[in-house]
């Protein structure tokens, strides 16, 4: 289904987006199987309406967020972002969404809120991949509060002007373009403000390979492969990976003085 018209954003890249088919048939979404082509089939049965996101933790006004109302907002923006997977492939995706900060401010995070934790739906009947213990379900992710409130960070409800396809994280997902793709958690049901760094799924699965920050960084290799170069889906050769996935100008200051080798 089409979404209301989305405003173009100055934060979009001018690079050519990948095709709708590429974006919707090559997905890492282990809730629907570990093969890249699994989610496109297995996610069809996911019921995304009605869908509410519980927002709680260190905030003055905990409550719920109705995913349906997000898709009818008049302030939706198109954000054409590079997406860099930790597996060394990349895409350009024309997301539609709103800044996460716009959504979160309503819940009035308190001074204790230093991090934001996110959780994906846990329902093995709808998400067959959750019947095997590939990861410790539900999928969890987290950001530092300043990362969550950064203007580049959005809650996306669609792509290519249409409602988010299930395999891409319907009805509402996070997009943090300067971090490896696994940080951009899909099909969110819970957002929690926390004083401490929350546990995150891939870090729990293999801490030496996947850090909490997971900033795209060509100078820090994954233990099993180089992160210096990437394959843009649709291209035969590899291109150099850019620091913070090309968003260094906007986000490098968030990590001033931090040893990115240790806090990868």
């Amino acid at each position: 289904a089409p979404l209301p018209p989305a405003r173009p954003s100055a934060l979009s890249t001018a690079e050519d987006p990948n095709s709708f088919k590429q974006i919707t048939t090559y997905n890492n979404f282990y809730e629907f199987g570990t093969g890249k082509d699994d989610p496109a089939h297995a996610a069809k049965a996911l019921v995304t309406d009605p869908w509410t996101v519980r927002v709680d933790g260190a905030c003055a006004k905990p409550g719920t967020l109705d995913a349906g109302t997000l898709t009818t907002r008049s302030d939706l923006e198109e954000r054409i972002y590079r997406l860099r997977c930790v597996e060394a492939w990349s895409m350009v995706v024309p997301w539609v969404g709103i800044p996460l900060s716009t959504v979160l401010s309503r819940f009035e995070p308190t001074g204790d809120a230093r991090y934001v934790a996110f959780e994906t739906l846990h329902d093995p009947r709808q998400m067959p991949g959750q019947r095997s213990r590939v990861l410790d379900w539900p999928y969890r992710e987290g950001l530092r509060l300043d990362e969550a409130l950064h203007p580049l960070t959005i809650l996306a409800v669609g792509l290519y002007g249409r409602v988010m396809p299930n395999q891409n994280g319907a009805p509402v997902r996070l997009v943090v373009p300067w971090k490896y793709g696994f940080k951009s958690i899909k099909s969110i049901v819970r957002i929690t403000f926390t004083p401490d760094e929350p546990p995150t799924s891939w870090n729990q699965s293999a801490a030496h390979e996947y850090g909490f920050y997971a900033n795209v960084n060509p100078t820090v290799d994954h233990p099993r492969w180089s992160q210096a170069r990437e394959r843009r889906i649709g291209e035969w050769g590899r291109r150099d990976t850019l620091m913070f996935n090309g968003y260094a100008e906007q986000v490098a200051s968030l990590y001033a003085g931090m040893d990115l080798r240790k806090r990868f």
Binding site: D221, R224, W225, S226, A228, R229, R231, W236, R238
Partner: peptide
């Protein structure tokens, strides 16, 4: 040839640093 594109530094890295 196809994946690494015979990129010397990547091949050397892979063959000396990547156990798998």
């Amino acid at each position: 040839v196809l994946d690494v594109g015979l990129h010397g530094p990547t091949l050397i890295d892979d063959l000396t640093k990547r156990p798998y």
